[in-house]
């Protein structure tokens, strides 16, 4: 029998995958423990869920990036309701904040439906949300609106805002940073760029406006 040379990338991808699924099961168990009710341990359980979620999100990103680098990432575009999308995102945000922040949702300027990859867009925004959770003071706002030929999905917070270096970045390469934001933004920008329609390409725009404003533009 011929031995196939071990491809470390593939091995890594498979391992990430397995770990991600195990964490998924762990999250489910934590959910059920929380339901049964453990007096005094609520905070710990909620912390564990938060940690699980962050690891899972990070692993998902790595897998997606791996596929992207290999040219395997084609978006699965279909019609979705941006309002429903925000509602899902809010539920995710709610499990993560564990009551520490107020979450505002502004879907009023959203079109009734839009064509985009729901799961990819969610990963990109979860990333922005993780960031916002690290920097917001009291409030995080999620919004959706139509801006010309684009749907704009936005996460803003009332924290100190993005550092100037990030505002100048065009996210063309992953940059490691203390907080890990660089990799996340690179990922979000990759997600934006696979969204293309009639010659227009999606993009990530960062701005500061009484806090950090992360915008994902999808054509």
């Amino acid at each position: 029998m011929k031995t196939v040379p071990l491809d470390l990338n593939t091995l890594a991808a498979a391992s990430i995958h397995e770990v991600k699924n195990l964490l998924g099961q762990l999250t489910l168990s934590l959910d059920s423990i929380a339901e049964i009710g453990c007096p005094g341990a609520e905070e710990q359980i909620s912390g564990a869920r938060f940690a699980c979620r962050r690891i899972v999100d990070r692993l998902c990103e790595m897998l997606t990036l791996y596929k992207l680098e290999g040219g395997h990432l084609a978006p699965n575009i279909d019609a979705h309701s941006p309002v429903d999308f925000l509602e899902d995102l809010m539920l995710e945000a709610r499990t993560l904040t564990a009551g520490r922040f107020t979450i505002d949702v502004q879907p009023d300027n959203a079109p009734p439906f839009w064509f985009f990859d729901r799961e990819l867009a969610q990963s990109a925004l979860m990333n922005a949300l993780h960031n916002a959770l690290g920097f917001a003071r009291t409030r995080i706002t999620l919004s959706a609106a139509q801006d010309g030929d684009y749907l704009v999905l936005r996460v803003s917070d009332d924290g100190p805002g993005f550092p100037q270096a990030l505002l100048n970045d065009n996210f063309d390469a992953p940059r490691a940073s203390q907080q890990g934001t660089g990799l996340g933004l690179y990922f979000a920008n990759s997600v934006a760029k696979v969204h293309q329609n009639k010659g227009q390409v999606g993009q990530v725009v960062l701005a500061n406006n009484d806090g950090a404003v992360f915008s994902l533009y999808l054509p």
Binding site: N21, L28, L63, L91
Partner: peptide, 28 residues
Amino acid sequence: AERVYEKVVSAVELAPDDYLVKPFTADV
């Protein structure tokens, strides 16, 4: 458990009412 099904679902004649990628919370 992964993105494989999303590829399948976008081209099939008979789509389910929705699909969920694991892990997800009870709320979702």
